[in-house]
Design a binder for these strands. Structure first.
Lengths: 148, 148
DNA sequence: CTAAATGCAAACGGTTTGCAATGCT
DNA sequence: AGCATTGCAAACCGTTTGCATTTAG
């Protein structure tokens, strides 16, 4: 869960990115907290440890990470983009109540290829929306309370 | 392909929406041109026939349509939202070259339900990104030209 | 006459840009 | 010194908001 500076440097090196304090901290945050943060989430998290940090630098780093393929922007019908560290093919579930975003596994299968014959598929985003397990349980509990 | 005013009025009525000139024209546009337009696309299309039209009214109508369930906003990693008239469950393919958005059929099957046990799924967005057939063919043609 | 619908202008908020300041080798 | 990185302030742009005006029943 916790990554050493050396590991983070090594990680960036693999993607041909020069390490800098900001980049290492953003990468560390992304790796250790798989929360699909917005640029602002990252900014707010880092501002304590880098008081001079600017939002621009966060955007710069995220753009670089995106270009180099470390990170993937996802838009979940919100106005802000979120950033997902690249891992296995997976889907996203966004809870409309708590706002949490859950990853869930996907077999590497496409829905129907027939129509897309001749198309080059470079990326697939599978986004589910609804109510997560936890929030469903809370709803159930409140209903029970009301009954007494 | 072409809808009469009466048909459009009937359509709105089903969704409990009072017909107004703007709403009827937007609905007509959405039904007759399945291009997943942005609010601005719609505004630009209508401004000729309604010179006093404001963007606000387009947003108002789209918000109403969304609330009533006529239309579904989709965000395809762009800054603007697009609006999709609700039809069968289908996926979207966005071409990175021409920018066109293609619908493609999906069997109504979910990837892996196991993880999402206890979750309430209200909506599923399947977005593919890449190069469409037409653009692929153009690329091929250009390559052939270069060879001579 | 009343309520709904429309439109204008300003505000909002996430992101981008231009450029100056700073840091690194 | 020279180049990359960072940071500030302003611009940008899609969208929202407040409110005044117009329209429709």
């Amino acid at each position: 869960m916790a990554y050493s500076i050396e590991e983070l440097k090594e990680y960036l090196k693999k993607y041909n990115i020069k390490p800098s304090t900001i980049r290492l901290k953003i990468l560390g945050f992304l790796l250790e907290n798989r929360v699909h943060p917005t640029a602002d989430d990252i900014y707010k998290y880092l501002i304590d440890s880098i008081p001079t940090l600017s939002r621009t630098s966060v955007y710069n780093a995220l753009e670089l990470f995106t270009d180099k393929g470390i990170v993937k922007p996802v838009s979940l019908n919100e106005k802000e983009l979120r950033y997902d560290i690249k891992t296995d093919f997976h889907g996203h579930f966004k809870c409309e109540i708590c706002g949490n975003i859950y990853d869930f596994p996907l077999q590497n299968q496409v829905y129907s290829e027939d129509f897309l014959e001749g198309f080059t598929i470079k990326d697939i985003h599978i986004n589910y929306y609804g109510i997560c397990k936890k929030c469903n349980q809370k709803i159930k509990l409140n209903k029970n309370k009301e009954e007494y």
